[in-house]
């Protein structure tokens, strides 16, 4: 290809002169236009919200524009607690712990862990995909969908997620997501997605698969009316406290507080060595 002497021209596009938001209103203080004297979230004064409502209420408001019903608030709070800590074996938590023990600046621990919690395997990206999957399949019978997806070729090694949010973990059915789903289903705000997911998980069970944490979060967030795009990030947000807590626990410990494998346990393939 020869040089094509590209003629570069600015597109005839109209960019907004001011960024728009329907979420947050900042009323400038009388003394300084850069400082807000009052902030409102979807019309509610933030300090009035702080006095009268729970964190879960305001979280719901922030993303959906209205305060939740008591039943919705209960379910969101239940979900947030169930997801609060992925645990010290989860790769996202371990990333924060590894960084902490190696004396990474404390303020980086959370973004490090959350980046790892954003992935397509059990992370925010899988929650998003799972919410889209649920949206597309709720009108169908779970057993019928399960039969279709089980036809797909399974990987020769490792776990199999026939659809986002459902599958095996470490070669088996992860029990806690199923228990969490059962708890959520018992709440009055649970809806079609959680019920559908229960049926789907039952259909997968004979094949050694079931709910995954990402699927439970997706179904609950779907029933609460959150969009798939919000769902992925809310999942990361829900898992954040545990990631940070485990990171901080290691932050003032010596580097010997976590394993650093010796040569016997760090196995370099022969072709990678001289």
């Amino acid at each position: 290809m020869s040089a094509n002497s590209q003629q570069v021209r600015k597109r005839d596009m109209t960019f907004a002169s001011r960024t728009q938001t329907r979420i947050w209103q900042e009323i400038p203080s009388e003394e300084n236009p850069y400082l807000a004297g009052q902030c409102r979230c979807h019309g509610y004064d933030i300090l009035e919200l702080a006095q009268k409502r729970s964190f879960a209420d305001v979280l719901f408001l922030l993303f959906q524009g209205e305060l939740p019903s008591p039943e919705q608030a209960k379910m969101l709070e239940t979900l947030l607690i169930a997801l609060i800590n992925p645990g010290p074996r989860h790769p996202a938590t371990r990333a924060a712990m590894n960084a902490a023990v190696s004396k990474t600046h404390i303020q980086h621990l959370l973004p490090i862990g959350l980046a790892v919690m954003g992935g397509a395997h059990l992370g925010g990206a899988e929650v998003l995909a799972s919410m889209r999957f649920l949206d597309a399949n709720l009108a169908r019978q779970p057993v019928e969908v399960a039969a279709e997806c089980l036809v797909a070729p399974q990987p020769a090694e490792g776990d199999f997620h026939p659809v986002p949010g459902f599958g095996s973990r470490f070669g088996g059915v992860d029990p806690l997501p199923g228990q969490t789903a059962a708890l959520l289903v018992s709440l009055s705000a649970s809806g079609r997605a959680l019920a559908w997911g229960q049926g789907f998980a039952e259909a997968l069970a004979p094949h050694g698969m079931g709910w995954l944490t990402s699927g439970v979060a997706a179904a609950a967030l779907h029933d609460l009316g959150f969009s798939p795009w919000a769902g992925g990030g809310l999942f990361q947000l829900a898992c954040a406290p545990g990631i940070l807590a485990h990171g901080l626990e290691l932050a003032d410990k010596p580097i010997t507080a976590m394993p650093f494998l010796d040569e016997e346990h760090y196995v370099i393939a022969a072709e990678a060595r001289k």
Partner: peptide, 24 residues
């Protein structure tokens, strides 16, 4: 690139009182 409060175009709901919390 600092912004005045007014540099953000708020298009959401007007000010409203916070309803009292009911618990299920």
């Amino acid at each position: 690139f600092p912004l005045h409060c007014e540099d953000i175009d708020y298009q959401g709901k007007a000010a409203r009182p916070v309803p009292a919390c009911e618990r299920s």
